[in-house]
Design a protein around this nucleic acid. Structure first.
Length: 503
RNA sequence: GCCCCCGUCGUCUAGCGGCCCAGGACGCCGCCCUCUCACGGCGGUAGCGAGGGUUCGAAUCCCUUCGGGGGUACCA
């Protein structure tokens, strides 16, 4: 095998995700990365990351690093990219300006592109007039075939020109899409390919870079369908073979509009980490959007469907024909369920390490505990692991265990629901607990049941509620007797007595 | 306005002419377990947008219509 001029082996599948560093990393980027990567892994291809920073107005300095962090967090590793290099460097479009220039010159020479000096104001007026006349909007070619001197005598002239495509009447608008089959895309107008600031627009840069980087399959969002004819034209003019296209469905807000950071906090990737979602849960969830669950048929012909899957399983069974063309609504309900499920699957130590940052963030303790404190946290962890949907809920459960009796807050709603006999229950409980020698869950429960359930003849629910409030400060808590064991005899008795005195 | 894409339970989906008076999952509701809340177990609710065709037979094919979305930038 011989290598081509982009340093890649012919025939090898190469895909990429190409985000714009314009702010917080977008969940849509992770979605695209996931499907690109799954496909690449499925066929033994390469997955590249390219930064498309041609928009200098919306550019954000820290965006690129955040993107790396979030994709790493999700475990979606690329094979080539700006940070790790590769045979097609550089992978940042702002560093490739010299690369695009000869392509632009070639297009102008071939009369496929031309200079345009129209001001934004003139273009806006033109479009408004076209719309008013119920005509399709598009550049009117005022500048085509003119020199700067000739054009300068006309209205709406600006000194620095842009370069536009000269789109012919017979431009190709049909193409085959891996997900949608034959697609009839709209006829493009004379799209700008080189901006006044010398940067290429997306359309030129994407075609040039995809070619130079040996991209074989362009997997991107549905929003690009209508620009695909522009890209097809550029490939044709430049004498390049066009890649295969796969236009993914768009993730939607609850109101069905394209998912946006403004309408949906979950459009920001960092939000998931802050909320305490596990990366494997998010990946699993994303893989379920626009794609069926794992469906297997056993020897008997019995069909079972499974929603839970790892990335490797997803990649293993990946198939374009199964990708849906309808845009799924990004509804967190199923993600919450997945997250709780994955939390329960964590082994104890991993779970503890996962909740510590959230406890520290919320000030439950100043830093990661060790020694006896960690052992205590471990005992608490055992009680709360099945109770969390989000890791960020952990501090609420953990805090009462690390708070001194004097500082324990009793929630208003917990206090309000108490019945009249609460004080008597507490007094009786204290008396029953004082003689308990070995402070274990079994002994604690035995002593309390004998005294309060049998002695006072109360129903468990009625009897245990005031005790729970005294010990935890809340009406809903981890298991009561286990909690008392963790707190220790002295602390437990102090809390019971102190709460009784406050009634 | 113009162009394009899409349309099965509330949500994610299976279905690719008979196996479907439509299956699974989440959610929701009920019951069980139970010291609260979870977990777990069991059961239930709910859908082929509408109208025409084609066919012995349509969720599946065709047309129309309605609905939703995207594009229409010197943003990606």
């Amino acid at each position: 095998m011989t290598e081509n001029d982009s340093g890649t082996l012919p025939g090898t599948v190469r895909v990429r995700v190409a985000p714009s560093p314009t702010g917080d990393p977008h969940v849509g980027t992770a979605y695209m990365a996931l499907f690109n990567l799954a496909f690449a892994r499925n066929v033994g291809g390469r997955f590249l990351l390219r930064i498309e920073d041609t928009d200098r107005v919306r550019f954000r300095e820290d965006s690129e690093q955040q993107l790396y962090d979030m994709l790493h967090w999700l475990g979606l590793q690329w094979d080539e990219g700006p940070d790790i290099g590769g045979p097609c460097e550089p992978y940042r479009q702002s560093e490739r300006l010299e690369t695009y220039r000869p392509f632009v010159e070639q297009l102008i020479e071939q009369d496929n592109a031309y200079l345009c000096w129209c001001t934004p104001e003139r273009l806006t007026q033109m479009r408004e007039a076209q719309q008013k006349a119920k005509r399709p909007t598009g550049y009117d070619r005022l500048c085509y075939g003119k020199t700067a001197e000739q054009r300068a005598t006309l209205p709406g002239f600006s000194e620095t020109p842009v370069v536009r495509m000269l789109v012919p009447k017979n431009a190709p608008i049909r193409f085959t899409d891996l997900i949608r089959g034959e697609v009839n895309a709209p006829m493009p107008d004379d799209q700008v390919i080189l901006k006044a600031d010398g940067f290429p627009t997306y359309h030129l840069a994407v075609v040039v870079d995809d070619h130079l980087m040996g991209i074989t399959h362009v997997v991107r969002g549905e929003e690009w369908i209508s620009s695909t004819p522009k890209h097809l034209l550029l490939y044709r003019w430049l004498g390049l073979e066009a890649p295969v296209f796969a236009h993914m469905p768009l993730l939607r807000n609850t109101d069905k509009s394209k998912i946006s950071k403004r309408k949906n906090p979950a459009a920001r990737l960092t939000w998931f980490a802050e909320q305490g979602y596990l990366p494997q849960a998010l990946v699993n969830f994303l893989a379920l959007l626009g794609y069926p669950p794992v469906i297997t048929t056993d020897d008997e012909g019995v069909v079972t469907e499974r929603e839970l899957q790892t990335f490797d399983e997803f990649a293993e069974r990946f198939d374009w024909s199964k990708v849906s063309s309808a845009g799924p609504i990004f509804d967190l309900k199923k993600l919450d369920w997945l997250n709780g499920t994955y939390i329960r699957e964590l082994d104890r130590e991993t779970f503890i390490d996962a909740i510590i940052p959230f406890c520290v963030r919320d000030g439950v303790f100043p830093e990661a505990p060790d020694g006896a404190e960690r052992d205590k946290l471990s005992a608490i962890a055992e009680l709360i692991q099945t109770r969390l949907v989000l890791l960020s809920e952990a501090p609420g459960y953990v805090r009462p265990f690390f708070t001194a009796a004097a500082d324990l807050q009793i929630a208003d709603d917990a206090r309000a629901q108490l019945k009249d006999g609460a004080a008597e229950v507490l007094t009786t409980t204290v008396a029953a607990l004082e003689p308990v020698g070995e402070w274990t869950t079994v002994n604690i429960e035995g002593a309390i049941r004998a005294a309060v359930i049998d002695g006072l003849e109360l129903k468990p629910k009625v009897a245990f509620t005031p005790i729970r409030v005294a010990v935890s400060g809340v009406r809903i808590s981890p298991p009561l007797f286990e909690s008392m064991e963790i707190l220790g005899k002295d602390e437990t008795l102090t809390r019971l007595a102190s709460f009784r005195d406050s009634l």
